[in-house]
């Protein structure tokens, strides 16, 4: 019985990772215009998910990555220095830092994806049409 419970939890977790990776793969491909990505993240859950992807290689520092997914402010600062594209998992970090192009986070049980138009333009990023509804002019 316990084994069944463990197996079912593992299965659910595996499904979560799969759906998370699907979202990020699509997002990274749209931003970076490539199929393989070097990603730096300070989020342990994302690290775990990214480590299971065959398209994502985890970078050891923001400077060696194509893109950074930050959950802490200091990571954003480090990414600034290297000029790497930054996404965040918190709305507050998106609001705080003008270099962060977008955020992927949960609010009231709903997943939120948000890009700021002028920040995308500043970094010369154009997103496919499917993302246009998530692009806002101001926060």
């Amino acid at each position: 019985m316990l084994l069944l419970l463990i197996l079912s939890c593992w299965h659910i977790s595996a499904l979560d990772i799969k759906s998370t990776l699907k979202v990020y793969h699509s997002l990274f491909a749209s931003i970076l215009k490539k199929q393989h990505f070097s990603v730096y993240t300070d989020n342990s859950e994302l690290k775990n998910a990214f480590s299971q992807s065959d398209k994502i290689s985890l970078a050891s520092s923001p400077s060696s990555a194509n893109i950074v997914v930050a959950s802490r402010k200091d990571t954003i600062i480090r990414a600034y220095q290297s000029g790497t594209i930054v996404l965040t998992t918190k709305y507050s970090l998106l609001d705080d830092s003008t270099r962060v192009i977008g955020a992927l986070y949960w609010r009231k049980g709903r997943s939120q994806l948000l890009f700021v138009r002028n920040r995308l333009q500043q970094q010369g990023i154009t997103l496919p049409k499917q993302y246009s509804k998530f692009i806002v002019d101001n926060l």
Binding site: S92, D95, R107, K108, R110, Q112, L113, K133
Partner: peptide, 11 residues
């Protein structure tokens, strides 16, 4: 608490 006037995509 959601930030005042922060954007919300309701799904």
């Amino acid at each position: 608490q959601a930030e005042y006037k922060s954007v919300f995509f309701p799904e």
